[in-house]
C-alpha cells in the first residue's frame, strides 16, 4: 500500500546537498521502503550538536566509532580499492583496472562454485520453514509455562558455538568411527564415505543442520507473533478458522516482516558462506564443496604453496557483496508484510 503525505516539505537535513543527489537519495529511500512519504522538516539545532551533553555522549561513543572505523570501514573500503589492484606478497599494490574481475569471470572454478552455492542457497531457503513451523507450534501452546520451558530448551544450545556442532557432526559422519556410518552399514550393507564422497558431501552438510531449527530465528518469529493483537486470534476462532488455514492466512502473513529480516540474513549467508565448507573440505570433495566464498578464501590463503592471489579474492569479495546487497534490496522491495 503506497502512502502519501501531501504538502509536506522535504527533509531539512538534506538541504545542503546538491538537488540532484537529494532527489536520487529520496528516490532510493522511497523505493526501498515502498513509500512516497516525505518526512516533515526538522531543523538542526547546531548548539545541541556541539553542546556539552553531545560532547560527553560523543566521548562514550568514541571507542565504538574508532573500532568501527578501524575494523569495519577501513578494511571494507581498502577491499574495494584493492579489488582493482595486483597485490604482491609484501602487500604492495599495483593498479590493474578490471584485470582481477576478468580473472574471476574467466575462471571455470567460479561457475562450478556458483552451482554449489545455488544448491545450498535453495535448500537454505527451504530449510527456513522448519523454524517457522516450530515457532507456530510453540506459539499455539496453551500453557504459558510449557511454552516457556520449550523456549528455554530451544535456547540452551545457543551457548555451544556452531563450530563445535559442526565438528561434532563430522565425528558422527566419520568414515572409521562415525555412528551414522556404522548405522548406514548395518541398514544398507555398505560403508558410505559421507565426508569423502563427492556425491554425498553436499547432502551431508545439509543434514548436519538437523532439525533445521535456529534458536535466534525462533525468538525473532515468536516476538512477531506475540506482538499481534489478541483480537485477531479471537476473530479467527469465532470465524471457525482451522489450524492449517490459520497458519497460511494469519500467522505466516503476519510475521512476514520478521521473515524478511531472517531472509536477508539467509541470503547473505548463503552467497558468502565458506566456513562450514572449509571444515568439511578434503581433496576428494573439492568440486562438490567449493562455493564462491570458499574460492575467495583459498585464493587468499591457498592450501598448497602457490602464491596468494589477493587481487582475485578482493574482486570476488566485492562481487559477492554487490550480489548480496542487490538481493537484499529486492527482498525489501518485493517481500511485503501484511498490516
Amino acid at each position: 500500500m503506497k502512502k502519501k503525505a501531501e504538502g509536506v516539505k522535504l527533509h531539512n537535513s538534506g538541504r545542503n546537498l546538491p538537488a540532484a543527489l537529494k532527489k536520487i537519495g529520496l528516490k532510493i529511500r522511497n523505493y526501498v521502503l515502498d513509500t512516497e512519504e516525505v518526512l516533515p522538516g526538522q531543523k538542526i539545532r547546531w548548539k545541541r550538536v556541539f553542546g556539552l551533553s553531545a560532547l560527553v555522549a560523543f566521548l562514550f561513543a568514541l571507542p565504538a566509532i574508532v573500532t568501527n572505523i578501524i575494523f569495519d570501514w577501513i578494511p571494507m573500503f581498502d577491499g574495494i580499492i584493492k579489488a582493482f589492484c595486483y597485490v604482491d606478497s609484501r602487500g604492495n599494490s599495483y593498479f590493474v583496472g578490471l584485470q582481477n574481475f576478468k580473472n574471476v569471470f574467466s575462471d571455470p572454478i567460479l561457475y562450478k562454485s556458483i552451482g554449489n552455492m545455488l544448491f545450498f542457497f535453495v535448500f537454505n531457503l527451504l530449510l527456513m520453514f522448519p523454524t517457522i513451523i516450530c515457532t507456530v507450534v510453540m506459539f499455539r501452546m496453551k500453557s504459558a509455562k510449557v511454552q516457556y520451558v520449550y523456549r528455554v530448551l530451544l535456547c540452551l544450545p545457543m551457548v555451544v558455538p556452531s563450530l563445535v556442532f559442526t565438528l561434532l557432526w563430522i565425528f558422527v559422519f566419520g568414515y572409521n568411527f562415525g555412528v551414522l556410518t556404522d548405522l548406514a552399514e548395518r541398514l544398507f550393507g555398505h560403508r558410505y564415505n559421507f565426508l569423502g564422497d563427492p556425491k554425498l558431501i553436499k547432502w551431508t552438510i545439509l543434514f548436519t543442520g538437523i532439525p533445521w531449527v535456529t534458536s535466534n530465528n525462533v525468538l525473532i518469529y515468536i516476538g512477531g507473533l506475540n506482538g499481534i493483537s489478541e483480537s485477531v486470534w479471537d476473530a479467527a476462532k469465532m470465524d471457525g478458522v482451522g489450524p492449517i488455514r490459520k497458519f497460511f492466512s494469519l500467522e505466516l502473513p503476519l510475521i512476514v516482516g520478521q521473515f524478511k529480516l531472517v531472509l536477508i540474513g539467509v541470503l547473505g549467508a548463503s552467497i558468502t558462506s565458506y566456513s562450514t565448507q572449509l571444515l568439511y573440505y578434503n581433496a576428494a570433495v573439492h568440486d562438490s564443496i567449493m562455493t564462491p566464498g570458499l574460492l575467495m578464501y583459498y585464493k587468499a590463503f591457498p592450501l598448497t604453496t602457490v602464491p596468494s592471489d589477493y587481487g582475485y579474492s578482493y574482486a570476488l569479495g566485492l562481487i559477492l557483496f554487490v550480489v548480496s546487497l542487490f538481493l537484499s534490496l529486492l527482498t525489501l522491495k518485493f517481500v511485503k508484510s501484511s498490516d
Binding site: 563430522i170 566419520g174 568414515y175 572409521n176 564415505n193 570433495v285
Partner: peptide
C-alpha cells in the same frame, strides 16, 4: 586404509 582422504589425524 580406505577412507583416508576424509580421516582426521585423531582417527
Amino acid at each position: 586404509r580406505e577412507g583416508w582422504i576424509s580421516t582426521n589425524d585423531t582417527d
